[in-house]
Structures are given as structure tokens and as C-alpha cells.
Design a binder for these strands. Structure first.
Lengths: 132, 132
DNA sequence: AAAGATTGAATCATCAATCTTG
DNA sequence: CAAGATTGATGATTCAATCTTT
């Protein structure tokens, strides 16, 4: 549901969205591609191809590293940041509706705590999830 | 983890396993392909290609419907049933270990109840998950 | 030799089109 | 025309190989 929403309203796949979100939290909206891959739990080649799309739409740009020519950065553009802002507003609201409709605040906390015990579980915090 | 285990120990993808499991619970180990697709949350073409593999290894066979020539059945073979039995023993044990290591019985029940409220959640029962 | 990035081949899913049968 | 099944083309992802730089 959430994925289809992002796609139809903003033209973003869930991975596009996550990539923009991660970049938006990085220093200067810029990250090494290899670090972005790790953050998105994708391979290096997966990131190359994901960014191909975001570069084509002008949401992300390449930048090169002066001190190490092996490194390429992915940089969030103003256009990308704007798109993320709009998409994030909708997405966070949709998530909120989906969960608040089904769980009380206490239940949400319990659910988050239980799921956080699974292997490789991401932070159950949620504070980092908005593009604010 | 669970998926990699199935693949390396028994040569089954998680979808292969699920297909054999669903067939094993059907009347005579046989189902219409379209119904199998629905049960596996796959498209019709996805099922065709999934069964291609299971038919190649002799775990599933085709059968035709006498009363409606449009229909093709997927039939679990004895070989498929044996493989499922072996894989299931390992798989269920692995799931058990994974969860019992992290949750008390009460916590498991709570987790199952909470998750069952999500849209399209499958049965939280678990009774149907073993190939026994 | 190792690290970062990209490319080509393979896998697995989907959709759209097609074929057969009802 | 609708239903069941398959096939071809496409998209997303991975792995293995390659290229450049350290």
C-alpha cells in the first residue's frame, strides 16, 4: 500500500524514497556510494542502478572526491530535496494512519520493542524517518 | 537466514518450499494452478515458472482436468512429499530456534496477535505450517 | 593486493499479449 | 467475451568480472 502510494503520487519507488531520505540526513546531503549501499542494505551495483534513475530525474547528482579518485559521491539536489519533502509528508501521514488505526500507543511501543529483537532489526525509534 | 538454509540444505527456494507445503495440505496433494497462485500470492505466470523448476526436479507433476480442459493441476509427487518432509523438519526447527531464543511464550503470543492485525496478515496460528 | 565503482549475465518477479476452452 | 495457462518483454536485484586508483 505505502509503496504503491509513493509510486503513484510522487513517482518514487520505496528504494528511491529511502535513498533520498538517507542522503537528506547526511552532511551536505552527500554520501559515498559505498556508504549509501550499506545504509540501504543494497550491493554496490544495486546502488549504481538505483542512482541511475534518480540522476536521470535530477534528484541526485554525482560528485567526485578530490583526495581519493576512487570515490564518487551521491549528492541530493534541491529538486530532490523538494520532492522528498512532499513525498515524506504524504508517506509519514500514511504510515501514521495505517498504524494508529490498528494500535494504541502502548501497543505500538510493545510491537516496536519486540520487533527490535529480531536479527539486524533497524532502530525502532522512528525519529529519523521524517524528511523534516 | 531461513531462506539460505533451505536453499543450501535442500535445494529449495522459500517459494519452492511454500508451494510444496500448500500442495501437501490440499486434497490428494493436487491443486489448480490458479488456486495455487492465489495461495502463494503470486501471479499465474509466476506459478508457471515456479512449477517449471519443481517439475524439472520431479517434485511436482502436471495433471489435466477431465471436465474442463482449460484447467491444469499441480500434483505433489511422492518424491516431492519426501523432500518437503525433510526440509520441513529442518525449517520448523530453525524457526523455533530463532524465535524461542528471543521471546518468551507470552511474548510470542503477543507478537502474533499484534501482527495479525495488519492488512492481509496470514493466520497467526502456525498449526498449518509443518509438513507433518 | 585491496577499495570503490561500473558493467554483463543470471534470477525472479511482473505485465501485456496470446492461445485454448467454456 | 471470460477463465486458465503460457510466453515474451521488462524491471530490480545479485554475483562475478573488470577497471581505476590507492
Amino acid at each position: 500500500v505505502l509503496s504503491a502510494d509513493l509510486q503513484s503520487r510522487h513517482g518514487l519507488s520505496i528504494n528511491d524514497y529511502e535513498a533520498l531520505l538517507v542522503l537528506s540526513h547526511a552532511e551536505d546531503g552527500r554520501m559515498r556510494r559505498v556508504d549509501l549501499a550499506a545504509a540501504l542494505v543494497l550491493t554496490a551495483s544495486g546502488v549504481t542502478r538505483l542512482l541511475d534513475g534518480l540522476e536521470a530525474t535530477g534528484c541526485v547528482e554525482k560528485a567526485f572526491c578530490e583526495s581519493d579518485a576512487r570515490v564518487t559521491y551521491a549528492v541530493l539536489t534541491p529538486k530532490g530535496r523538494e520532492l522528498l519533502g512532499r513525498a515524506s509528508a504524504d508517506h509519514v501521514a500514511a504510515i501514521g494512519a495505517l498504524f494508529e488505526q490498528r494500535y494504541s500507543p502502548e501497543e505500538l511501543e510493545t510491537l516496536a520493542e519486540l520487533l527490535s529483537r529480531l536479527p539486524d532489526a533497524a532502530s525502532a525509534d522512528g525519529a529519523e524517518c521524517s524528511a523534516g
